[in-house]
């Protein structure tokens, strides 16, 4: 069963990490993800750039409105995600705990995936 692990954290804090701190966290996270990949449990994953670089297209009017910044002003922002292939919610939670152990602060939203399209560029 496919789940998305959506990573939320305070980007002010995350982008205040020193380069060394950032690299240290990324190394630890990388090791966890590699374990999942070897076990055939890891799908696509991504780390997003700060919300200050984001643009939002509001579709509630016609034509849609282009807004500078993220969709919502929240204390914690969507900073990245993993797609994982697991047996059940318990296992998805287990993986999220592994991730949490090396990356403090914020929250993971664990969300089942309804429709999944792999990167078409990889299938060519």
């Amino acid at each position: 069963m496919l789940y998305a692990i959506l990573c939320y954290n305070d980007e002010d804090v995350v982008w205040s990490w020193s380069q060394e701190e950032d690299a240290a966290v990324m190394t630890k996270i990388g090791a966890v993800a590699e374990r999942w990949a070897k076990a055939g449990k890891l799908g696509p994953s991504a780390r997003l750039l700060p919300t200050t670089a984001a643009t939002t297209l509001r579709k509630t009017q016609d034509p849609p409105l282009v807004i500078d910044g993220p969709f919502a002003e929240t204390k914690e922002q969507l900073l990245g995600f993993y797609v994982v292939d697991v047996a059940d919610l318990e296992e998805a939670l287990e993986l999220s705990r592994e991730l949490a152990a090396v990356n403090p602060g914020g929250a993971y939203e664990i969300r089942p995936i309804g429709l999944y399209n792999a990167d078409p560029r990889l299938c060519a």
Binding site: V14, E21, V25, N103, P104, G105
Partner: peptide, 15 residues
């Protein structure tokens, strides 16, 4: 990341 590093980052961000 250690507790201390996290606290430092949180303090820097909050400053």
């Amino acid at each position: 990341m250690t507790d201390l590093a996290w606290i430092n980052a949180a303090i820097t961000a909050a400053r």
